[in-house]
Amino acid sequence: MKITSIKSHVLKYELDKELGYSQQYYKHRATHLVEVQTDEGISGWGECFGPGNIALANKFIVEKVIQPLIVGENPMNKEFIWQKVYNLLRDSGQKGMPIQALSGVDIALWDILGKKTNMPLYQLIGGKCNNQIPVYGYGMMLQNKSVNELIELFKEEAKQIKSKNFKAMKMKVGLGPKDDLKLVQAVREEIGIDFKLMVDANHAYNLNDALYVGRGLDELDIFWFEEPVAPEDYEGYKELKHKINTNIAGGEAEFTKYGWNELIKNKCIDIAQPEVCGLGGITEYLKISALAQANFIPVINHVWGSAVSIAVNLHLLTAQPDMPGGLFPSKAMLEFDTTEKNIFITDLPTEDFSILDQVKQNDGLAAVTDNAGIGVTPNNDFIKEFEINE
């Protein structure tokens, strides 16, 4: 079996309303799919993390930089291919977009292996450790409105997420320390003290502001404080982790086992959030997961993408052992986008793939299918409708 071509598909559509996080507002939703084709007629699908124009840059890297390096290679040789690409790009791409691009390619190679062997991904990476995975709803994104308006919007959205049977929920902050705490307090009062709530800052703060917010979160019984400071600020993470009681979560902007080794050995986080579509793909994710386990750090994957990303992460979590284990361990959760309807989740796959229906019917839990590979196949007609070629 040989790789014959790699196609990169960037899809985009306009949202009904502008959404945002601490760094920007956006009006379009985009996703970047990678299709690896072989001489045996088996194609694999992957996804690259990185929205908008970043996806277009990654498309160029996939097709013009990575493709020439690996066309003709046996797709079964995933480790060899990963090391070949990384080593040849090392001088220019140890982090960032080259690794995001490699991630999508690597995931597609695992999909090919699953289809070739007629086995689901979770079996290829160790088998089933969990029959079902708890799911948390990720919503309450920022909008260009006053804090009082956002409070009312967030309260209503929080109520809706809770009513859909999610096991927990996560909200955005980024207006400024005092207004952010007002937002969190309003949501906490709406959902009650017994419902698990997480707060995502997308590295909005310097250390002093993060300490101020973190101490406020301690009083509101928040499960984790995500990306409170810049991902490069290992010392800031470390100090924050030691000075507040709320769990510090991070890692979505970290790349490869080398970057994750620094994050972990500097004792920056309580909860690891690897982004498989960005850190180097499944091949690298498995090494990072093992590194986290060796340091007794729970892994709760970062998930923000299409049905391809969600399916891959559901397999990864299904195969993930409880950490540290016991009769009643704390389970990892699957992150699920509950904002305005995301057609890249609902309408992209040819298979029946509805996490939301599972959550509603199964008390907040979702289960992986036994379909070969990652278990979902993008619809070519859908791709043609929403693909951009800028």
Rank of each mutant, 00 (worst) to 15 (best):
I345T: 05
Y136C: 00
K155V: 10
H242E: 15
N245D: 15
M171T: 06
D179W: 04
N144K: 15
S163W: 09
I388Q: 02
K116C: 11
E351F: 12
A367K: 13
V368E: 07
N130K: 15
G375E: 04
I388Y: 03
L124K: 08
A290Y: 09
N131T: 12
G72V: 04
L286K: 12
P378F: 13
K287S: 04
S309Y: 02
N144C: 06
Q143I: 00
S22R: 01
N165C: 04
G214T: 06
T338N: 03
Q123V: 12
N118D: 10
L153W: 09
L102T: 00
A292F: 06
N131E: 13
K162N: 00
L348E: 04
N58R: 08
D270S: 05
A307H: 01
T4G: 02
G137L: 02
Q143E: 10
G41W: 06
I300N: 05
F195W: 08
M1L: 05
A186W: 06
E284H: 05
Q83D: 10
L197D: 02
K257S: 00
D357H: 12
E239A: 08
K128Y: 09
L89K: 11
Q320N: 14
A307S: 11
L279H: 05
Y237N: 04
S8Q: 03
P378H: 14
S22C: 02
F195A: 07
F296W: 14
E226N: 09
K84S: 10
V10I: 12
D352F: 08
Y26I: 08
L334A: 08
G44E: 01
K172Y: 11
F60I: 02
G127Q: 10
N342F: 12
K167Y: 02
K360M: 08
A201F: 10
I264L: 06
M198W: 11
E335P: 09
K64W: 04
Q143R: 11
A201C: 06
A253T: 03
F255Y: 11
G216E: 01
S354H: 03
M141V: 12
V199Y: 08
K78S: 07
Q83S: 12
S289M: 10
S103Y: 06
K145D: 01
F80W: 13
C129K: 13
W304G: 08
L240A: 03
D106K: 11
Q361A: 13
D370K: 14
L19C: 09
P274Y: 01
G137M: 07
A186G: 08
T350F: 12
P51Q: 12
G41K: 07
Y205Q: 00
I310F: 06
I310V: 15
G41L: 05
A210D: 10
L286E: 07
N247I: 13
F223I: 02
I374L: 07
Q361M: 11
E252S: 01
Y13G: 00
A367G: 05
D16G: 14
